[in-house]
Design a protein around this nucleic acid. Structure first.
Lengths: 318, 318
DNA sequence: GCAATGGCTGTTAGCGCTATCACTACCAGA
DNA sequence: TCTGGTAGTGATAGCGCTAACAGCCATTGC
């Protein structure tokens, strides 16, 4: 018992005893068994994080925000990856919950009914992140992707572009990209416009795919005057292609992406984009979990963040 | 007990009983407590993965290889991030081991003495990845960064470049980058050469930093004829800068990076680089752990992989 | 003097599972 | 008939900790 107290820094132990215990632990190479500890104390210092992918850059950034905020709280993030597959997400959630974590952070609002049910009755704080266009199980932190799509469409139209094409991922389960496109098309429709071309890809190097898709769209629809990309990576690929071809950007043709990927800051021309507030989302989500530790079960909370449109160098001014 | 048997698919249970149990579990929303299960069975289906960073792209790729291989084995990866800090790594290892995972995968061969000791007596398979220039605690899968540095230097020198500058990260604990540079300088020295300039950075957008450092080096040492970068991201930034300035690449000035980041495939000119075999490293490491599950404690194994030099478009031929 | 307090250490029970063995029912074969 | 096997199920102990409380000693206040 005294050993337990020393190793957890809990309760009173005399300085001499503490030293003796630590010394013994060191020489024995003793590592306490957290499994037994967790079972006995009904407390697990883990926070589950379920995300669709690690290769998207967006999610590692969210993770950074989460880790940063969890630092010093005694909580540790545990990552699970769903690969954008609802069934896989369900099993990852099941797996996570069976470890009885202190909280769960999960990307998106769309889950299988079984997953919804598990989350609802898990009895721990659940934070759904990235998106707020829908009904959260418990807490939520994110942006409205539908609104983001609308905002971008408005900016593009008010800059005078009319013949707009879209390029994005072929992913039925990327609900956030879908919502952005929906919002985007909504505003186009309200202005009597429709997308004059669209192209989808899946897998491979995003930069390269952006280049290839752009080439395809430009040769198929040479009169296009704006290229809207579902993310900055393919947008950057497209931008590099346009610059290589000597096209007049943003005069004759404009481009825009989504995300505000800092990674790409080194390209000679800055792509128009919207920041998805990834770091902030991670931070807030982590805060919600660690804050909930002390208090009881508080009312579900939804935090909406507002991305800022950055026109960069690829949308003409005025 | 019968419930336990049904939920783990172990032992004989009649079809009717199984169905009744599953039905009850479903209506109750029952999620078994893995903590208790693990404590009772002394088996934990987790594999710890300790890496320095998630924002480096290299590590998410390794993770992809690991997840891919672990799929279907019943094992689940759990990630811990050390931020290139030895002390933090030590505490992450401690944290991980206290959950008694089935195995541990850890980047690099350099750890604190305490961490070394913990790993050595953990009693589970340990796989140190990425690097093999050193002495592993148990198993290892990786490449020789020293050799990689040498190979690149040889290629550069035999292409006729002589006035070489280096740009890299300011990270005393990035041992792999350090070893590459050591190998590189070794070969320079053997050919009577030394680096004529060097520049280091930390933090920020790698692409942008590459651009800035390149500008700094070129203005300080205008007679430089080769730029060697410690990674592809800053290399790409430098390449974009050189192209923007209309420099003759690879005629008057050559460039090379390291890693083979697929991400960058969309740039008009292909940067010379070496593939670090990241996916393969992740796969092999995961295999070693899952393979060790059935057999007893086998002899430590070291797998060396061999990166391939890709001269791309930024080293002149012949 | 004694009770009361606080600092420190030890004892006991039990967290929710699984390993192991015990038990029942049933059938085949001698 | 009995033995021996097998399929299915239940009873018991215990995994390695921690919560809760019990106990002890030294000090303090009156």
């Amino acid at each position: 018992m005294t050993v337990s107290r020393v190793l957890r820094n809990r309760g009173d132990v005399s300085a001499t005893t503490r030293e003796r215990v630590l010394e013994a632990a060191r020489t024995l190479g003793y590592v306490p068994n957290k499994i037994a500890g967790a079972l006995a104390s009904q407390r697990v210092n883990l926070v589950g994080v379920v995300i669709p992918s690690l290769s998207n850059m967006v999610f590692p950034e969210v993770m950074t925000g989460i880790s940063e905020m969890l630092e010093g709280t005694g909580l540790q993030p545990v990552v699970g990856v769903s690969n954008y597959l609802p069934d896989r997400e369900e099993s990852v959630i099941y797996e996570m919950l069976s470890w009885r974590p202190s909280g769960l952070i999960i990307a998106g609002l769309e889950h299988t009914p079984a997953a919804q049910a598990m989350l609802a009755r898990a009895g721990i704080p659940i934070v759904e992140i990235m998106d707020i266009d829908g009904t959260p199980v418990d807490h939520a932190v994110g942006i409205s992707h539908r609104r983001a799509g609308r905002q971008m469409a408005e900016a593009i139209i008010s800059a005078g572009y009319r013949r707009i094409a879209f390029m994005g991922t072929q992913m039925p389960n990327d609900h956030r990209a879908r919502k952005r496109l929906e919002g985007f098309e909504e505003v186009l429709a309200a202005n009597g416009l429709t997308l004059i071309d669209r192209e989808f890809y899946s897998g491979g190097s995003a930069l390269l795919k952006g280049r290839e898709m752009t080439e395809a769209v430009l040769s198929r629809s040479p009169d296009v005057d704006f290229l809207y990309y579902s993310n900055d990576m393919i947008g950057a690929g497209g931008l590099l292609y346009c610059l290589d071809k000597g096209l007049d950007v943003p005069g004759k043709i404009g481009l825009a992406g989504f995300n505000g990927v800092e990674l790409l800051d080194g390209i000679s021309r800055k792509l128009a984009t919207m920041d998805a507030c990834r770091l902030e989302i991670g931070r807030r989500a982590a805060q919600m979990i660690s804050g909930k530790q002390t208090l009881g079960k508080p009312a579900p909370e939804v935090i909406e963040l507002f991305p800022v449109l950055q026109t960069g160098d690829t949308i003409r001014k005025g």
